[in-house]
Design a protein around this nucleic acid. Structure first.
Lengths: 231, 231
DNA sequence: CGCGTAAGGTCAATCGCGTTGGCATAAGGA
DNA sequence: TCCTTATGCCAACGCGATTGACCTTACGCG
């Protein structure tokens, strides 16, 4: 029931170095966590391992985050921030939305292990707020009514996150599970009795080719078409 | 390096009752797991708890599944099976695809805690194979070329699973995290400084209403339109 | 019908996980 | 320079999955 044992990042004064001389910060912790996720998979981010990677005691992390969950939210916000870094609206709403969508989708897919943890979470942190505000502003400035803006915004952001999660999900996962899925594909789908599954059998080679690409760009363009017709 | 310590369900002969008299089976275990997921959230499925609920030692589960991961795959396949139980193709490809999509999406959303664990996994088990074969057959029978069939199938299944995962994801999650997300919404979004986030501020009430619904039906219809134009 | 075998349930132990409370120390304002 | 307290460290707790050894009883063969 202690209110908040964590000092917010901007109020931090004393930067006491760790035993091995490293000075911690929220930024450093999040970046290290992203590295761990990339190296060890989405289940590979543990307090102990993170402490090890930072040369700090695991419990030290609780001076920066209330728990692993809050750290995960911070990671998610960092992804959004990375996605939109340097982006500026051009005034062409269609181009702007397309750019934002592809950037966010791309950022998640670029960090699939992290995406697996964060795609369905609402962080309420700075970068996420900025992204929401930006998308809403693009639509309103383009002349959409408030209800249309909200409807399109909802579809846009959900579609982006949904595909990001799906595409990231199949890339992420502990390498064992990934290998398991691949094995399933090869050993099960490829060797199915042709008699029982004729459609899978005939489609199998084409499917193997198709499945590596994301359907998101197509779906995004369809959404933009629909929105344009609305104007 | 032991090949397979698990006896496949159909080869099971001896049904030895547990200490308290219950006879285990793959089916019973999966159903109990689904109940646990519903009651305790997606993080609430643990070997210990499952053993407790079954009145069996946790290690007994390893006689039926190689590990928790394989159990999760079985749960996913059960969801697909439940989704398509009793479904028969009508011959109208559009109706058939719509029905399959809505059924699968609905089944996942109906078990959000389970969906969170399984949406991005390939199980290769009976029900999943049957669903794939069915969708491919609908498209081929409708007259689509093999490449078109594969392309549409890919978009259809990915979109369905992506939205299912997203919609389920926001419903599932440990109740603590869910409450956290809700709190974020109320305490952060609702109280944002109007000056810094004018668009969010004006949209906030409408967003709160919109966000509870899924955008999947709309997206599905758009996909079907696009496919129809292809024929 | 009874007996040997091994399937399948149980027990106990291992290891890693997040998290916490107490403690030590040094950063930095006064 | 001194005092406060932020912040790092340590040890311990409870719970997680998983495993290997053991035991017991259901089954199938003669």
């Amino acid at each position: 029931m202690v209110p908040k044992p964590v000092v917010p990042e901007e109020k931090r004064r004393r930067r006491r170095p760790t035993k091995s001389g490293i000075v911690l910060s929220e930024r450093l912790i999040v970046e290290t966590a992203l590295r761990l996720l990339r190296e060890h998979g989405s289940a590979g981010l543990t307090a102990r391992r993170l402490g090890l990677a930072l040369d700090a005691d695991p419990s030290t992390l609780y001076r920066y985050f209330r728990g692993m969950d809050e750290l995960v939210l911070a990671i998610g916000d960092a992804l959004i921030g990375e996605a939109l870094r340097g982006w500026e609206p051009t005034g062409e709403w269609r181009d702007d939305l397309r750019a934002v969508g592809l950037r966010i989708h791309g950022a998640y897919v670029a960090h699939p292990q992290a995406a697996a943890l964060t795609t369905s979470r609402v962080t309420g942190r700075a970068n996420e707020l900025a992204a929401d505000e930006a998308v809403l502003d693009v639509l309103r400035t383009a002349g959409f009514s408030l209800p249309d803006t909200v409807r399109i915004y909802h579809a846009f952001i959900d579609q982006t996150l949904a595909f990001a999660a799906l595409d990231a999900g199949s890339l992420a996962l502990p390498s064992e599970a990934l290998r398991a899925d691949e094995d399933v594909w090869r050993s099960t789908y490829a060797r199915l009795p042709r008699a029982a599954y004729p459609r899978i059998a005939e489609a199998s080679p084409l499917l193997a080719t198709r499945m590596v690409n994301s359907a998101y760009p197509t779906a995004l363009e369809m959404l933009l078409d629909s929105a344009a017709a609305q104007l």
